[in-house]
Design a protein around this nucleic acid. Structure first.
Lengths: 125, 125
DNA sequence: ATTGACCTTAGAGCTCACTCTACACTTTAT
DNA sequence: ATAAAGTGTAGAGTGAGCTCTAAGGTCAAT
């Protein structure tokens, strides 16, 4: 599978695929005789996982850590578990922050609707 | 009120204040004889509003649009409320996504802890 | 043999939201 | 009078995450 095929099946541009490889997100990519990249079918899953985690707000550095942890056959289980726990604590903290933001937005929306009939001033108290 | 005073009373650095002005977030800033910026006390409120909206997840571009609309008096309360609702829907969607991630990480952590005593092999999905 | 599609690399450019530097001018304190 | 502190501008740098270009190598079809 060459780069155009991986681009086609993942929706991630060849530029970005090479960038991900350069950033260490795709580990070792094998090459053909002609130096062309030769991807295994598994690469599709891996790129899709990168895309998903990216959409969820993880940085490329964090994605690399997670993928490395999930992939490493030699990984220590306890270490992996701790990595997951750390990530999860971080995610949960972000959830709490976003929930606070959501509540503030709801309060602001409520306030604006209530003052819709009288005078209006956005976000100024 | 000069830039140091505004920096002091808002916690926003002079660099950032000038950057905001350059980005059109502070409209016209009056100058003294010596070309120093001369802020009115209202500027404190305006900068605080920028800070608040930023914390609510609005980009500087969105904040400029909101401030422009307020200046032009073309935004009423209902429009403001709709803006908040739209942003909140976006935030809530991200919360749901992160909750799904948290659950996946928790499951992975659990699995790793269970296999900590026996053979450790990270399964990919 | 030549076209054109595909691949390679290094490196430049872009957006966002700052952050800082260099250098000059003004004000204030001693 | 001098030094320190404050302010001005233009422009470069940062870092994340791409995005694109230039210049060249490879390959299949005509």
């Amino acid at each position: 599978m060459r780069i155009a095929a991986l681009e086609e099946s993942t929706g991630v541009s060849r530029h970005t695929l090479r960038f991900y490889e350069q950033q260490g997100l795709l580990s070792e990519v094998s090459r053909s005789e002609n130096r062309y990249r030769n991807y295994s079918p598994k690469a599709v899953q891996r790129v899709q996982m990168i895309t998903q985690l990216k959409q969820l707000g993880f940085t490329l550095g964090e994605i690399r850590e997670i993928l490395d942890a999930l992939r490493a056959d030699t990984m220590d289980c306890e270490q992996g578990a701790r990595l997951m726990a750390t990530k999860r604590a971080w995610v949960d903290q972000r959830i709490r922050e976003l929930q606070a933001v959501s509540e503030m937005l709801a309060a602001e929306e409520q306030r604006l609707m209530e003052s819709a009939r009288s005078q209006c001033r956005v976000e100024r108290r």
